[in-house]
Design a protein around this nucleic acid. Structure first.
Lengths: 154, 154
DNA sequence: GCACTACATTTGTATCAACAACAATTGTAA
DNA sequence: TTACAATTGTTGTTGATACAAATGTAGTGC
């Protein structure tokens, strides 16, 4: 659907403004879909994200800083986000031995199990969300987005 | 830049997951840019958005519901968002005469003046942000995004 | 007019996020 | 080995946000 129609904008926008609105709107759309997919599992998208990052490291612990770097939305307080996951017994925290400023965060068995279950639901949702584009179109979209974020220096 | 590199993901993702990450990441990137553009003007992106919506109506008042429909991210509490704008003297609120359940929100002179100034800054930022893509590529991107959001029913 | 439902907005509450101040640790260099 | 700067994480405060319940208004059938 045309973004102008979606947001009930009467006049036609220049292509660049339209692209920005379209990106923001589509991003929110995806966020909403994933949020509601995760709702039954009582976990937020950010918490889910952290679990995925930790699992991606195959048991290797991860500092808060490393987690933050890899998050889709860089947030200002990873400490408290991890606190939530500790309360749920999905991750463990301990002081890093080689650099005592750091904290090692590790995913627990419980966390891995939970993540496996949740991942199935999310995979489903993700597949459905990208249904309308062909593999080729998705590839093209990715290329455009990567290029989009390229900073051009004058 | 490749999204895998941006988020330091070691393995290659399937195209569909990559597209979703890419969209979310790019959306956040845009939000961050606009947020920092607006910061000196002491206004949030959502408040700015509401002002733009109201100005787009050329003086015609607008109910809360109408505003909500047209916002990029549908939020749960437009009342308090408008409260903030009233405090700043950018908008006025009065009960709608024809339907007293509704409230008419109108942008004030102050609001229009502020918006004009802010718009210049935002236009600049928006132009810079879309610099890396050609008009043609932007058009293509828009087409893909519109298609992306098409729901396919089985 | 009265009960009933739908609608539009507001309010209460709990949670979440941004920002800044702080503390602890490490690295470096006189 | 002391001094100073940089890194890493935590905590307090304040404001924003989501969700649910409540309020007030309109329309509809009787």
């Amino acid at each position: 659907m045309l973004i102008e129609k979606e947001l009930k904008i009467s006049k036609q926008l220049p292509e660049c403004k339209r692209a920005l609105l379209n990106l923001l709107f589509t991003g929110n759309w995806i966020t909403d879909e994933i949020t509601s997919t995760l709702k039954p599992f009582d976990i937020t998208t950010q918490q889910f994200n952290v679990l995925r990052i930790l699992k991606g490291r195959n048991g290797e612990p991860c500092s808060l800083q490393t987690i933050q770097e890899r998050m889709i939305n860089k947030m200002s307080n990873t400490t408290r986000l991890v606190d939530k996951l500790i309360k749920k017994n999905y991750v463990e925290r301990e002081q890093c031995e080689t650099n005592r400023r750091k904290v090692d965060i590790k995913i627990t068995e419980d966390g891995i199990n939970a993540l496996n279950v949740i991942n199935d639901a999310v995979d489903d949702a993700e597949t459905k969300m990208t249904d309308s584009l062909s593999e080729n179109e998705l590839h093209h979209l990715n290329a455009l987005l990567n290029k989009f974020r390229t900073k051009t220096y004058a």
